[in-house]
Simulated assay, not measured.
Amino acid sequence: MNVGEWATLIGAGGSFLGGGGFFMARATVRAAQATAAANQAAARAQAAPAQQQADLAVLQATVNRVDEENGQLRGRMSRLESVVRAFSWTTDRWARQMHDRGITPEPMHPLADEYNRTGV
């Protein structure tokens, strides 16, 4: 073999090995990316129960607060309905007393009249 043939042979071999190195490097990068993606997925899977627990704790605290507020509002609403009912009975009694004595009272407000007729 002469020098030109050796040069061609070495160039071809180097080209082949260099190309193989390129493909090996590409495969290594892809393997590293796949490993990183798998590690991230594993970390998310491990963190998911803790995140769900935190979300559940926030939800439970919100439900407890809303339940407490609803209880307070129901109590206030019940008290207000009792006051309106008592006031309605009182004004109705006064209106009857005025009628009995021949005094014509002012006409009742439409909302009060509706409450007296329907209780709502």
Rank of each mutant, 00 (worst) to 15 (best):
Ile103Trp: 06
Gly102Trp: 06
Gln97Ala: 15
Asp92Phe: 07
Thr62Gln: 08
Gly4Val: 04
Glu81Cys: 04
Gly119Gln: 02
Glu69Val: 05
Arg96Lys: 11
Leu80Asn: 06
Gly71Phe: 01
Val3His: 06
Glu5Val: 03
Arg74Thr: 09
Val120Gly: 11
Val58Ile: 08
Gln52His: 15
Pro105Gln: 03
Gly71Pro: 00
Pro105Tyr: 06
Ser78Ala: 15
Asn2Lys: 11
Met98Phe: 11
Gly119Phe: 03
Gln72Cys: 05
Asp55Pro: 01
Asp92Val: 07
Gln40Arg: 14
Ala32Leu: 12
Ala38Trp: 08
Leu59Phe: 15
Arg85Asp: 15
Leu9Arg: 04
Asn116Met: 06
Ala32Cys: 06
Val83Leu: 03
Ala41Tyr: 14
Leu9Gln: 06
Asp100Asn: 14
Asn70Thr: 07
Leu17Trp: 14
Ala45Trp: 10
Arg74Gln: 10
Asp67Cys: 01
Gly119His: 04
Asn39Tyr: 10
Arg117Leu: 14
Ala42Asp: 11
Leu73Phe: 14
Thr90Ile: 10
Gln51Ala: 14
Thr90Met: 04
Leu80Pro: 00
Ala38Asp: 14
Leu59His: 05
Gln52Cys: 05
Trp89Lys: 09
Arg117Phe: 15
Met24Tyr: 13
Gln53His: 14
Val120Arg: 03
Pro107Tyr: 10
Met98Ala: 15
Ala25Ser: 07
Asp67Val: 00
Trp94Asp: 03
Leu59Thr: 09
Pro110Asp: 08
Asn39Arg: 10
Thr90Tyr: 14
Ala38Phe: 11
Gln53Ala: 11
Arg96Ala: 08
Glu68Trp: 00
Gln53Met: 10
Ser78Thr: 13
Ala25Asn: 13
Ile103Val: 13
His99Pro: 00
Gly71Leu: 01
Arg76Ser: 13
Gln46Ser: 11
Asp55Cys: 09
Ala47Asp: 12
Val58Gly: 01
Thr35Pro: 00
Ala25Met: 12
Pro107Leu: 02
Gly18Ile: 02
Ala42Pro: 03
Gly11Cys: 04
Ala86Ile: 01
Gln53Pro: 01
Gln40Lys: 13
Glu106Cys: 03
Gly102Ile: 05
Asn70Glu: 14
Gln33Ala: 12
Val120Pro: 00
Arg30Thr: 12
Leu9Pro: 00
Gln46Lys: 07
Trp94Leu: 11
Ser15Gly: 12
Ser78Glu: 13
Pro107Phe: 09
Ala57Pro: 02
Arg79Lys: 10
Ala25Gly: 14
Gly4Trp: 04
Glu81Tyr: 05
Val63Leu: 03
Asn2Val: 10
Ser78Tyr: 12
Ala7Arg: 04
Ala95Gln: 01
Met1Cys: 09
Gln51Ser: 09
Ala95His: 00
Ala36Arg: 02
Arg44Gln: 12
Leu56Trp: 15
Ala37Thr: 06
Ile103Met: 09
Glu68His: 00
Trp89Pro: 00
Val3Leu: 10
Asn39Ser: 15
Ala43Gln: 15
Val58Glu: 04
Val3Thr: 12
Asn116Ile: 02
Pro105Asp: 03
Gly71Met: 04
Glu5Lys: 03
Thr118Met: 06
Arg74Gly: 04
Met1Arg: 01
Asp92Gln: 09
Gln51Glu: 15
Leu111Cys: 05
Gly21Arg: 03
His109Gly: 03
Ala38Cys: 06
Asn2Glu: 13
Gln60Trp: 08
Gly102Phe: 11
Arg26Met: 13
Ala43Asn: 09
Ala61Pro: 00
Gln40Phe: 15
Trp89Cys: 05
Val29His: 07
Pro105Trp: 08
Trp6Glu: 07
Ala86Pro: 01
Gly20Phe: 02
Gly102Gln: 04
